[in-house]
């Protein structure tokens, strides 16, 4: 079967034609680069996304700390991961890239800070 797919890897947004059989990836056309093929393969076998959100900070110059999963996670797990993120509370200071919750998807992805925040209570 052929499926039209818009690649989300970069802003170019290639409109690709992806050939597959059930959960088996066969091939891709109209992708500009090899990342497109990788993305198409993942989309057929097991679609993945980076999840971004915020967590509450105590004592920081930021009220909310922006966070992300440090690698793409399974799409079906997004809402489970979001629920875990809701529970996270951190105390400043936090450095960018600090791991706030490891192995958040039970598949090796960590929740990391995407900004630093200093402690303003001290």
């Amino acid at each position: 079967m052929i499926r039209k797919m818009t690649c989300i890897v970069c802003p170019r947004g290639c409109e690709m034609d992806v050939e597959y059989e059930k959960n088996t990836f066969i091939g891709v056309l109209n992708n500009f680069c090899s990342k497109g093929e990788e993305y198409a393969r993942d989309e057929i076998i097991s679609p993945k996304r980076v999840v971004t959100s915020t967590v509450k900070v105590i004592g920081g110059d930021l009220l909310m700390l922006p966070v992300k999963t440090d690698k793409p996670v399974n799409k079906e797990k997004i809402f489970d991961i979001i629920k875990k993120i809701y529970q996270v509370k951190v105390t400043a200071p936090i450095e960018i890239n600090d791991v706030l919750l490891s192995n958040i998807d039970d598949n090796g992805a960590n929740l990391v800070a995407t900004s630093s925040t200093i402690n303003i209570t001290k």
């Binding site: 818009t6 989300i8 890897v9 970069c10 802003p11 947004g13 409109e15 996304r49 799409k75």
Partner: peptide, 12 residues
């Protein structure tokens, strides 16, 4: 907006 955002923000 960009096609990728249609895909990952709406269609998803």
């Amino acid at each position: 907006g960009l096609s990728r955002n249609i895909e990952q923000c709406l269609i998803d």
